[in-house]
Nucleic acid binder design. Structure first.
Lengths: 97, 97
DNA sequence: AGTATAAATTATAATAAGTTAATATTGTAG
DNA sequence: CTACAATATTAACTTATTATAATTTATACT
C-alpha cells in the first residue's frame, strides 16, 4: 500500500503558499499586480480602499512566502508577482460561486 | 484609477477554497485522490498514517468547500475530487522548495 | 441481540492569523 | 537640518484553526 510522508518540506511549502493565497485582500493584490505588473504600496491600498498598515502587512506576508518581490525606488516600494504559476493557482479557483 | 470591491462573494469563495487547500494533510488527500480517483476514509488515514478522526475532520472540511464529493457504499464512505481545476491549483504551487 | 468495523461528531486546549491603532523608519524636497 | 510623504513595524486584542481524545452513529456479520 502506498503511504505518504507528511513531513516533506516541499509539501509544507506548498501548503503555506496556498494558505497565504487564501485571503480576499491577498488574492486582490495578486490580481491587481497581474494586470499592472508593478504597483506601489500607496497605489495598492488606495485601489483596495484599505488602511495602509493593512496593505503593508499583507504585502509583507506575501513577500515572506516568496509570492511577491519588492523593489524600492526612492520613497516608494514597488511590488510584483514573483512567478506566473501563482496567478494560475488563483485562477484555477476563481470560477466558483 | 481602478478600484476593487473586496466584498464580492466569488472573491471570498476563491479565498476560502485556497485557504482550505493550504494544509499539508489536505494537499496529500487531494494528491492521493488524484492518483486513485476514489478512496475510503480508512484507506486515506492509513496511507497518511494519521488518526481516523483527523482524516475525517479534514475530509469534512474539504467536502464543505465542495472540493471533495463523498459517496457511501455499505460501511465505507468514498471520497473523490470534485473538479480537476483543484488539482491544478495544487500543482501550480507544488514545485517550490 | 451482540460485537466489530467504519466514519462522524463534539469538546477542549494549544497555536496561528487577522485587525487595529499607534509609533518608527526611510527617503526627498525645500 | 526640518518637514513631509511613503512604508514598515510593533503591540494589544480578537478570532479562527488545528490536534487530540472521547464519544456517538451507522452498517455488517455471526
Amino acid at each position: 500500500m502506498k503511504t505518504i510522508n507528511l513531513n516533506s518540506e516541499s509539501l509544507h511549502t506548498a501548503a503555506s503558499m496556498l494558505k497565504v493565497l487564501g485571503h480576499p485582500i491577498r488574492i486582490s493584490i495578486i490580481e491587481l499586480l497581474d494586470d499592472t505588473n508593478k504597483m506601489s504600496v500607496t497605489e495598492i491600498f488606495k485601489a483596495l480602499k484599505i488602511e495602509q498598515a493593512i496593505a503593508s502587512h499583507h504585502l509583507n506576508t506575501l513577500k515572506n512566502k516568496r509570492i511577491l518581490m519588492s523593489e524600492r525606488v526612492g520613497k516608494n516600494t514597488y511590488y510584483s508577482v514573483s512567478d506566473p504559476n501563482l496567478i494560475s493557482a488563483v485562477n484555477s479557483v476563481r470560477s466558483y460561486k
